[in-house]
Design a protein around this nucleic acid. Structure first.
Length: 207
DNA sequence: ACCGGGATGTTCT
DNA sequence: GAACATCCCGGTG
């Protein structure tokens, strides 16, 4: 195969994201988040359901903070919490629905030196990305990436160099038997089984 | 191992 | 004022 013909990893398209977050979430497991030189396999996610979900930022309808959630699918919703942490979601569904998937943990694949530099508190590499704010810090995700289009095509549009952040198929399919549990760190709708992670995976935030 | 508390600032009641 | 889709550190067992 020629160098020019060598396919880059297939980027997830808009149609992948434009479905209910409960469908998208488990299928994001084992996909690869790419940001600059850093790559990590998604191993833990949570679904948030929109205005009817009391635990969702969308619960009270659109605001300035959550505006991205109510936009088109396939964009990154990045929010600030606890006065110091950023977390990243993938917007799902149809415009106006306000549904998203929270990225909770990655298994680091590439760019570990950069991750370690941004996460001095991580004693072991398994602590680099095993939490939603940890992975954001490791990859350098902050409010500047809120609204970023994960489906932007390389070499098209305003960004000649391609998307700043995207998700690709790394070749590993989603697990047939993911662990499904209740969501973490919320105080409402705590009983719903909307958290998925890869069974046996050491890089999850909690067992 | 587990547990408790502090950090830090935006958003909402 | 209180809550917050969290993390880190320092205690004890």
């Amino acid at each position: 195969m020629s160098a020019a013909g060598r396919a880059r990893p297939p980027q997830l398209r808009r149609a992948f994201y434009a479905r209910p977050s409960v469908e998208v979430a488990p299928e994001l497991l084992n996909k690869v988040l790419v940001l600059g030189a850093c790559r990590g396999r998604i191993v833990e996610v949570e679904a948030y359901l929109g205005p009817d979900d009391p635990a969702s930022h969308a619960h009270r309808g659109p605001t300035r903070r959550n505006a991205t959630m109510f936009g088109p699918a396939g964009h990154l919703y990045v929010y600030f919490t606890y006065g110091m942490h950023w977390c990243a979601n993938v917007v799902c569904g149809r415009p106006g629905e306000g549904t998203a998937v929270l990225l909770r943990a990655l298994a680091p694949l590439e760019g570990l030196d950069a991750m370690r530099a941004r996460r001095p508190a991580a004693r072991r590499d398994r602590d680099l990305c095993n939490g939603p704010a940890k992975l954001a810090q490791a990859l350098g995700i902050d409010g500047r990436l809120d609204g970023a289009d994960l489906t932007a095509r390389p070499g098209s549009g305003e960004v000649a160099a391609g998307p700043v952040v995207t998700i690709v198929d790394g070749g590993t399919p989603p697990p047939d038997d993911p662990v499904v549990t209740t969501r973490i760190g919320i105080s409402r709708a705590i009983e719903l089984p909307l958290r998925w992670y890869v069974r046996g995976e050491p890089h999850v935030s909690r067992r």
